[in-house]
Amino acid sequence: MTTFLEARGLCKSYGRPPRPVLRSIDLSLPRGVIWGLLGESGSGKSTLARLLLGLERPDAGQILLEGEPIRRWRSRHPGGMSVVFQDYVTSVPPQADVAAIIAEGFPPGAPRPDSAAIHALMDRVALPRFLSGRLPHELSGGQLQRVCIARAIAARPSLLVLDEPVSSLDIAVQARILELLQDLAKEMTCLFITHDVQAAVHLCEQLIFLHQGRIIASLPREELFKTDNPHVRDLLACTLVLKDF
């Protein structure tokens, strides 16, 4: 498996006096794998995602994509990385219809997508085509998150970051969106950020655990219950599942 993304010694602090949020993160993500990034709130998950997407620069350290520095890689691959956020409502312009929102996902300069291209993407995320003229407020949360996912995969990104994409949805809708992501993510390198261990195990082959800005464990899904890291074991012990009834 070739390495797609490599991060070395990433550090990031915010505020004054500086409060470290990430402390010397090393990562190596092979192509075509779904990675789960787990941790409590405030552990640095979203900050790490913003650095890997090139939305912010690290204070120290380096990010390489296919061996190239991130800024150069991004300029050579427009639309090469994409993101889906937890808050689908603020992720879309309220006055744009579904087709226009999905069209935003095509890279600038690319030919304007025709309705066949939009419909093909709607089919991919199992959105009925008759919704293409609807506005965001006319959709359910699950439908709107599907619109955001369709927009995120429009340009066939190599890296897809999913930042808590199902946390605001009903359990029943969560399961369906996770199935969809499982199917889509086969074509790209995918980083699924969540505090929900059950959702991560559902979707991800590899799990990375952050705690206070450090990676405390990185392991294949099958070894999750074999770890002796106390923070990971705490998280597993706290996970609520239905008990036998």
């Binding site: 029943a172 059950q198 559902h202 219950f225």
Partner: peptide, 21 residues
Amino acid sequence: RRLLEARQALSRPFLQLRGGR
């Protein structure tokens, strides 16, 4: 039944790994 099945489906991989139900 649907709410129950959805919860069980979401937990299933976790429970399988844990070695429980």
